[in-house]
Design a protein around this nucleic acid. Sequence first.
DNA 1: TTAATACTTAGCTATTGACCTAAGTATTAA
DNA 2: TTAATACTTAGGTCAATAGCTAAGTATTAA
Lengths: 108, 108
Amino acid sequence: MPNYQASLDRVFWALGDPTRFAIVEQLARQPASVSDLARPFNLSLPTFMQHLGVLEECGLVTSEKTGRVRMCSLNKNKLEEVDAWISAQKRLWTTRFDALDKLLENDK
Amino acid sequence: MPNYQASLDRVFWALGDPTRFAIVEQLARQPASVSDLARPFNLSLPTFMQHLGVLEECGLVTSEKTGRVRMCSLNKNKLEEVDAWISAQKRLWTTRFDALDKLLENDK
DNA sequence: TTAATACTTAGCTATTGACCTAAGTATTAA
DNA sequence: TTAATACTTAGGTCAATAGCTAAGTATTAA
């Protein structure tokens, strides 16, 4: 099973669906089996599995099957990657304002 | 102009498109007019504007028209919101492991 | 006051994505 | 060894999205 290096926008895309967003919020609390995860959602199992597939493909979730049960977990590393990107954008934005401030300072 | 309180998954969804992702990365560096922003993209202007519309609707971008030029800026607050959500999920995840560690500690 | 610029609107097309049902496979419980 | 459980595969529908062109409007430059 190769670890497809998903690009960040794919991760964002995955989180952009309300169902998948909720799945991630649930998995942040604790790992869970597919059916336990699926129970609160009013979706057919194949549909639900598709969402899990998307989350797994983009690296946000990992899963392992033992016997007939598949356990899913959140991959914290992917969250860190997202976090890092956001921080970088915030930093760029802030840096710009700092530079502007300095410029105005010099003008005095 | 009402400020549509966009839910977070809509923000993720907006960032999930490569074009919009790139627009945000650009706007983090500096505000820009629509045509300046659009130039590097191989898209028709209407298509490009549609992407800007999505970013604006979800609150990631603001814009203001003066004369015939519309200037776009990043809304840092939205980035903060995203950041806060990610941090919360990471915290939940970590808390769980801390609890597990404590449990194992007690078992010794 | 004409022409160019910078969007904007309208309307169409193709693809993707979210959903479903039905039927299958592999494990485990009875 | 039969039945139930927990997915999994196959295949189909429909709406939403990303893309386009053509034809506007409003501002500014010439």
